[in-house]
């Protein structure tokens, strides 16, 4: 157990509550160990994921504003484990802060819902990666040595929405960022540097333009293989969906397959949490050590 526990309004996101529920499972398993107290808010709705915006831009911002108001009511910052939720909510926050017309339109739509966003400047949406990075020295003390990941070459996969657009993301720093790598190092493990780490996994067009999506996905594995990586770790369940679930579509039978871990699973393994509690049996590309 971590010395200090900090409360967060936990925003798992739709995918984490459904197809990627092992991410939710592993987050709940590691939270007390890394000083995070998750407060569930059952009223939390979808962030809109940048998709609702394409049908109705103000509806997406209103959805996020509703979630901000729910967290504000509890006086808590929002913690996400999904890069897309983080990116979408920080985009909405940026619009609410900078566009008075949007703020007025959103307030109008929220009227009568009993929810009021009182102080936009106090709203905080943070990704797990940033929380862990801030307290990385504690990880150093907590990690087991050796642990099941010791000696493996670990390829961190940031993907896109955690970092871009950097003007809206609190994890700014973009291509020079080393937050993921520094977390891996704090666990006494070995990160590998490779060009694909901040690139696109293709998820958003996986069912719309499959040819292009598969080409993008295939490139990510070629780059990881070029860096002699053993496993990939991602900060986004949507990236995990394709990196893990569709890997066999873009890698031939003879080609190396990469286990893909969620960030809390990496932490859990390094801290000695039982594999079953981390949901590692729920990956399509199996994890074996």
């Amino acid at each position: 157990m971590h010395r200090h526990q900090k409360q967060y309004a936990y925003f798992p996101g739709c995918n984490t509550e459904s197809i990627s529920s092992e991410l939710d499972q592993s987050m709940r398993a590691i939270a007390p160990l890394v000083g995070i107290e998750l407060v569930d808010i059952p009223e939390f709705a979808c962030c809109g994921a940048g998709m609702v915006r394409e049908q109705d831009a103000y509806a997406e911002i209103a959805l996020c504003a509703r979630d901000f108001a729910l967290a504000e009511r509890q006086g808590l910052p929002i913690l996400t484990v999904c890069s897309t939720c983080q990116g979408t909510m920080n985009h909405a926050l940026h619009i609410l802060k900078t566009d008075p017309d949007a703020l007025a339109a959103v307030n109008l739509r929220m009227e009568g819902s009993g929810l009021v966003l009182r102080d936009i400047s106090a709203v905080q949406v943070i990704h797990l990666l940033d929380v862990l990075h801030e307290d990385k020295d504690s990880l150093k003390e907590l990690a087991l040595s050796p642990n099941p990941l010791t000696g493996l070459r670990i390829a961190p996969f940031y993907g896109c929405r955690l970092l871009r657009p950097s003007s809206e993301s609190p994890s700014s720093g973009l291509d020079q960022t080393r937050k993921f790598e520094e977390i891996i190092e704090s666990l006494g493990l070995l990160p590998v540097n490779y060009p694909g780490r901040t690139k696109c996994c293709g998820f958003d067009i996986a069912f719309v333009d499959q040819k292009a999506a598969r080409a993008l996905l295939r490139e990510r594995f070629i780059e990881a293989e070029g860096a002699k990586a053993d496993i990939l770790v991602t900060s986004c369940p949507l990236c995990h969906n394709v990196l893990d679930g569709m890997q066999s579509q873009v890698r031939s039978f003879e080609e190396k397959k990469f286990p893909v871990l969620h960030l809390p699973q990496l932490i859990g393994l390094a801290l000695g949490v039982d594999e079953r509690k981390l949901g590692l049996n729920r990956h399509v590309t199996g994890w074996k050590r």
């Binding site: 959805l63 679930g245 569709m246 066999s248």
Partner: peptide, 30 residues
């Protein structure tokens, strides 16, 4: 691919999840 995911328990059910008090969300749409 769906079958490979379903074997691992990754099944999106048709009835899906519902947010508490989600009726008010409908008002947010144009």
């Amino acid at each position: 691919t769906g079958l490979a995911m379903a074997i691992r328990g990754k099944i999106p059910w048709p009835w899906g999840k519902k947010a508490k008090s989600s009726r008010e969300v409908r008002r947010y749409f144009r």
